[in-house]
């Protein structure tokens, strides 16, 4: 059995001459901490979207064959984007609501953060019968069903969020309107999303 008194004595030494010794120990420990921190960064950063995922930022879709009442879903960044050619009734229903009555009056356009959630703002400018938005419920990420819910737009079956025919939240737990991504027409019938 060995009893150790050495450590206490070492500490005693340190107290004898605090400045140089303390500075050395602190500098070493600080530099070690910097090293560990620097080493940690690659292990954290590796979880960010990688270069190939970032490069897949756009999808193209041909909407030439859409008829009123048709809807297509295209994948963009791993999420569905709804493109719906709305009927006259659906457009009329969307027009009939005052923005001030909406739970979320913001337009949620990626192209214009100031816009209000009017039907006009959310419609596709080139063809206002069309609406294009990310088909992911703003509550917890489920995919809403189309032509469903109390407002004839979309209905999220997970927690009962009702969206109208302009994709605006009207009732239920979802906090925001369905977001509209950046897109552009690259020909008369082809839209590039992203």
């Amino acid at each position: 059995m060995i009893k150790l008194s050495t450590q206490a004595e070492t500490q005693h030494d340190m107290q004898d001459e605090p400045t140089r010794r303390d500075f050395l120990f602190i500098a070493t420990a600080a530099m070690g901490a910097v090293g560990v921190g620097g080493l940690a960064w690659p292990f954290i950063a590796q979880m960010n979207p990688d270069a190939s995922a970032l490069a897949l930022a756009s999808s193209e879709v041909d909407i030439g064959s859409l008829q009123p009442g048709d809807q297509v879903s295209v994948m963009w960044r791993g999420k569905p984007v709804f493109i719906r050619y709305r009927t006259e009734e659906e457009i009329a229903a969307a027009e009939a609501v005052e923005v001030s009555d909406l739970p979320d009056p913001a337009g949620r356009l990626a192209s214009d953060e100031e816009a209000l959630a009017t039907n006009e703002a959310r419609s596709v400018p080139e063809n206002p019968a069309l609406i294009l938005m990310i088909g992911v419920c703003t509550h917890l990420g489920c995919i809403p069903l189309s032509e469903a819910g109390e407002f004839g737009g979309w209905f999220c079956p997970c927690h009962g969020s009702h969206y109208d025919t302009a994709g605006r939240i009207r009732r239920g737990p979802a906090p925001e309107n369905l977001p509209i991504p950046q897109y552009e027409f690259i020909s008369d019938t082809t839209i590039r999303i992203g």
């Binding site: 690659p42 292990f43 950063a45 590796q46 979880m47 960010n48 990688d50 270069a51 190939s52 995922a53």
Partner: peptide, 28 residues
């Protein structure tokens, strides 16, 4: 393992994916 695919058709490519595309993948 977060980036690797253990399948005969994809394993080699997933390693190259790590080497080329994943953030600091080459380092890891």
């Amino acid at each position: 393992v977060m980036h690797y695919t253990p399948h005969a058709d994809m394993a080699f490519s997933s390693v190259e994916h790590i080497m080329r595309d994943v953030n600091y993948g080459w380092l890891l």
